[in-house]
Design a protein around this nucleic acid. Structure first.
Length: 735
DNA sequence: GTAGGGTTAG
């Protein structure tokens, strides 16, 4: 648009003219032209015109320009201050916002008003904790804005952003009046803190309040909670409410319902709703893609993803996260590796949401090393990614690693939230053995997570937590008698009913100290049925003290109570192996296999002609299987001639050497390399990705292959890159 | 006397 020609020359250039000129400006260049006209027209000192211009500049992210303009005004009024305070904050400079706010209070005769406080509080959400916000809160109360709805909502939002649930709830309860936005803020904030049940409760309170109008935001905010809780009735109730309010075709609500039905396993209804959206946007596509993914409908998921790309829409990180099969009960390693590969290539892997999703899915696949690798390589570690890695360790039974990482998190100055604490407490319950009990307790106390109706599902009451931390301390210090005494005192003197965590902790105290019989006696005397946490604690102790008999007993119970948890089987099998009882160890692994709980086998990915090919060990499913095995046979002959000997040390203990040789010969990386050799140009580089650490036999074999074929072979394994060239590997045989 | 500044959601 050429503003000069757009102007009828006769039009009078008054203030309204310049204001509408500014309103019509949509680019920085428009604003610069308008600014020039304002100067020429003699309106450079007109405060309302300058305020409007400053506002528009901030909106277009020209904060430097806006600041210069602000500084050129000799006596800025409160309006202009407010605009610039907001401008700094929306341009990512909360510090400048606060400096200007302080300057306004100290050095001008102006008094901050409700707008000023609202902008300042919003800006303070940009800091790393809620401290500045709380100071503003008290100042606002002093200045008489304690009950302002805008400021109140911004504060509730801020407290919830930093998981200060107690503070948010207190403020919310104390507000003399609550409007729709305040209610909505509370609900969505609880959802963000994974307090799903509470958010539904608050929503129900809101519905019950006849004075309060529900809007699309209210319904859209609570829908994720209904989905997470799999509460079909709640979700359908929201749906009929939406119809009653005439909001049923609102895109946010339809999208929310798609997520909801998908989470409840009903992709049929979700699909119908998706088809009702006139022009689905990226968020709607993402919801549907993720819905298909989490219901294991990979084909539909990929089909919709392609449809999205065909529309010319750019997939964002949420799209990819939705494609990553985080929800599959037994995962989908091949697909995950493909997506991982795609993310590395497109640079999206550095996105915190994506690395978090990859960390989570690898953890669930028991690929904890791959999970850790992704975590370590992510440059910007969000709270969610710390949580994912910690709970990954917890779920894989690696309690010590979970605690260790939790400590690292503390040194990295990342504030834990209730999700973190829940993970850590569940680690406590798992094997009982945490030295951090006291510390966790202090944290819970300091952060106000406890005695809070919103929050933690662990069911540990504050006084229960206090005892728990004391018991942890005993467990750590090996104070058996002391622990026994504390437990007794807790029950008899303080009337605290012990929870599974307390019992598990006691078993751990006895078990760690080698008093396994005493631990068993304790379990047998428990007034409640011992759960997995208790037997898990005993099993862990048996592992330390190599007590096969008790281990067997504990595992038997665990298999009954928690048959899906592969970790116990592995532990037991290891105990037998240590005892050199290979037939028993093998039979345990047999059970695992029979129940298809086996660890996902090693697999290798190679990309040829833009298509990923995934091989598992002994794989014969590839269309070119015959050629691949023939190539491998041919290679083995040449390798043996060149002095290659199969390495078998790392293979299973209980098979004959010849059989072992047969087994390693068809490891997935060898198949992938053989395929690479027959399907790519001679002399070109071969790149493969292996989900596990490459085994010594494959490593040696690859060195030979690189020499014999004259190919460079790059292997990315769970630990590192290996660059094979002319019979030598870049890792120096150390990995 | 007037203009110029405000929140939550899929």
């Amino acid at each position: 648009m050429n503003l000069r020609t757009a102007l009828p020359a006769a039009l009078e250039r008054n203030r309204n003219f310049f204001l509408s000129l500014l309103n019509a400006s949509t680019t920085l260049s428009h604003l610069a032209q308008a600014h020039a006209q304002i100067i020429v027209g003699g309106y450079r000192n007109d405060i309302s015109t300058v305020t409007k211009l400053t506002h528009k500049l901030c909106d277009l992210r020209a904060i430097g320009y806006a600041r210069d303009l602000f500084l050129s005004v000799s006596k800025p009024d409160l309006f202009l201050f407010n605009v610039v305070i907001k401008g700094y904050s929306t341009n990512g400079s909360p510090r400048s916002s606060m400096s200007l706010f302080a300057h306004l209070r100290k050095n001008t005769g102006l008094r901050p008003d409700n707008f000023t406080y609202f902008f300042a509080v919003s800006a303070s959400a940009g800091f790393r904790d809620e401290k500045v916000g709380t100071v503003l809160h008290s100042q606002a109360i002093v200045d008489g804005f304690g009950f302002d709805l805008f400021i109140g909502s911004a504060l509730v939002d801020l407290y919830l952003k930093f998981s200060k649930l107690e503070l948010a709830k207190k403020l919310f309860d104390e507000m003399p009046e609550r409007d729709t936005v305040l209610w909505n803020t509370m609900i969505s904030g609880l959802v963000k803190n994974c307090c799903f049940e509470d958010s539904v409760l608050v929503f129900k309170d809101m519905v019950a309040d006849a004075e309060i109008r529900l809007d699309s935001t209210s319904l859209a905010a609570v829908l994720p909670a209904a989905g997470e809780l799999h509460q079909l009735r709640v979700g359908m109730g929201i749906q009929s409410l939406a119809t009653k309010l005439g909001l049923h075709s609102h895109v946010h609500i339809l999208t929310g319902l798609i997520s909801f039905y998908s989470k409840c396993g009903d992709t049929g209804t979700a699909t119908l709703l998706f088809d009702q959206i006139d022009r689905p946007d990226l968020v709607s596509y993402n919801a549907m893609i993720s819905g298909y993914t989490c219901n294991n409908e990979t084909d539909s998921s990929l089909r919709l993803f392609k449809e999205l790309l065909a529309l010319g829409e750019r997939a964002n990180s949420s799209t990819i996260v939705g494609l990553i099969p985080v929800f599959f009960p037994f995962g989908h390693l091949g697909l995950t590796l493909c997506i991982h590969c795609f993310c590395v290539k497109s640079g999206m892997v550095s996105n915190p949401a994506i690395s978090t999703a990859l960390t989570t899915v690898y953890s669930r696949l028991n690929e904890i090393e791959l999970a850790r690798q992704v975590f370590d390589e992510s440059i910007e570690k969000s709270l969610a990614s710390w949580n994912a890695m910690i709970s990954g360790y917890t779920q894989n039974g690696l309690t010590d690693a979970a605690i260790h990482l939790f400590q690292n998190m503390q040194t990295s100055k990342v504030q834990p939230n209730p999700v973190t604490v829940t993970s850590i407490l569940s680690a406590c319950a798992q094997l009982g053995a945490l030295s951090l009990g006291k510390w966790v307790h202090n944290l819970v106390k300091r952060e106000g997570f406890h005695s809070n109706i919103y929050m933690l599902q662990s069911g540990v009451s504050p006084s229960g937590v206090t005892f728990l931390s004391a018991l942890y301390a005993c467990s750590h210090a090996g104070l058996v008698t002391e622990g026994d005494r504390i437990f007794h005192s807790m029950v008899h003197d303080h009337g605290v009913e012990p929870l599974a965590e307390h019992y598990a902790c006691m078993v751990d105290i006895f078990g760690r100290a080698g008093k396994l019989e005493k631990a068993l006696e304790f379990i047998e005397r428990m007034p409640v049925e011992p759960g997995p946490a208790i037997w898990g604690a005993l099993l862990g102790a048996c592992m330390i003290h190599k007590d096969t008999r008790l281990a067997h007993l504990a595992s038997k119970r665990l298999f009954e109570l928690d048959p899906e948890n592969v970790g116990y089987y592995v532990l037991l099998s290891n105990i037998y192996s240590v005892d050199k009882n290979y037939p028993q160890a093998a039979s345990i692994r047999q059970v695992v296999r029979r129940r298809s709980l086996a660890k996902t086998p090693g697999c290798t990915l190679i990309e040829v002609g833009g298509l990923p090919h995934v091989f598992t060990s002994g794989d014969r499913s590839h269309p070119q299987t015959k050629a691949i095995y023939a190539k491998l046979e041919n290679l083995m002959g040449k390798m043996t001639e060149a002095g290659f000997q199969a390495e078998t040390v790392t293979a299973l203990h209980d098979v004959e050497d010849e059989e072992k040789e047969l087994m390693v010969k068809v490891h997935s990386e060898k198949l992938a390399i053989a395929f690479g050799l027959i399907s790519t140009e001679p002399g070109s580089e071969i790149r493969i990705i292996k989900n596990l650490r490459v085994c010594i036999d494959c490593h040696t074999a690859t060195k030979f292959i690189s020499k014999i074929t004259g190919r460079d072979i790059v292997v990315r394994d769970a630990n590192r890159f290996h660059h094979f060239k002319d019979g030598i590997c870049s890792c120096g045989d150390y990995w």
